[in-house]
Simulated assay, not measured.
Amino acid sequence: MRHMDIRKLEKFHAKHVWDVAEYCRRTGLHKTEEQRLIKVLGRYASSHELQMNVVRPQTRTR
């Protein structure tokens, strides 16, 4: 892990990092999906990583 001086960071470099369990609870994902995401991404991930790796069940539209 690389350490950075906080005073030198700019706002556009910052990413919001979620606790995967909290993200799953807020979005209503099932426990098995939460466990799969933790295996794939670890305990913490960015919102983009979470959105790209969530597998939602297909619903029939017809």
Rank of each mutant, 00 (worst) to 15 (best):
M1T: 12
M1Y: 03
R2P: 00
R2I: 03
R2T: 00
R2E: 01
H3Y: 02
H3P: 05
H3L: 10
H3R: 02
I6C: 10
I6Q: 03
R7F: 13
K8N: 03
K8T: 12
L9V: 06
E10N: 04
E10Y: 00
K11N: 15
K11I: 15
K11E: 10
K11T: 11
K15Q: 15
H16T: 15
H16L: 15
H16W: 07
V17G: 03
W18G: 07
W18C: 11
W18D: 13
D19N: 14
V20W: 02
A21T: 04
A21F: 04
E22I: 06
E22V: 14
E22K: 10
Y23E: 07
Y23T: 06
Y23P: 03
Y23F: 12
Y23L: 04
Y23H: 14
C24V: 03
C24K: 15
C24D: 09
C24Q: 10
C24F: 14
C24I: 08
R25P: 06
R25D: 10
R25S: 12
R25Q: 15
R26A: 13
R26W: 02
R26D: 11
R26F: 05
T27W: 01
G28L: 07
L29I: 06
L29G: 03
L29P: 04
H30E: 14
K31V: 06
K31P: 12
K31I: 07
T32F: 09
E33H: 00
E34Y: 07
E34P: 02
E34G: 00
Q35K: 07
Q35Y: 07
Q35S: 10
Q35W: 10
R36C: 01
R36M: 00
L37M: 11
L37G: 07
I38R: 13
I38C: 04
I38P: 01
I38T: 07
K39H: 04
K39S: 13
V40H: 10
V40M: 07
V40Q: 14
V40N: 05
V40L: 06
L41K: 15
L41R: 15
R43S: 02
R43C: 09
R43K: 13
R43D: 02
Y44W: 14
Y44T: 09
Y44H: 13
A45F: 05
A45N: 04
A45I: 03
S46C: 11
S46F: 04
S46E: 09
S47K: 08
S47A: 10
H48N: 12
H48S: 13
E49N: 05
L50S: 02
L50K: 02
Q51A: 11
Q51G: 11
Q51D: 12
Q51W: 04
Q51P: 02
M52I: 07
M52P: 01
M52D: 12
N53Q: 13
V54M: 02
V54P: 01
V54Q: 01
V54S: 00
V54G: 02
V54F: 01
V55K: 08
R56C: 00
P57T: 04
Q58R: 14
Q58G: 05
Q58W: 06
T59D: 02
T59V: 12
T59I: 14
T59G: 13
T59N: 12
R60A: 11
R60G: 10
R60Y: 08
R60W: 11
R60T: 11
R60N: 08
T61C: 06
R62C: 05
R62W: 00
R62P: 09
R62A: 06
R62E: 03
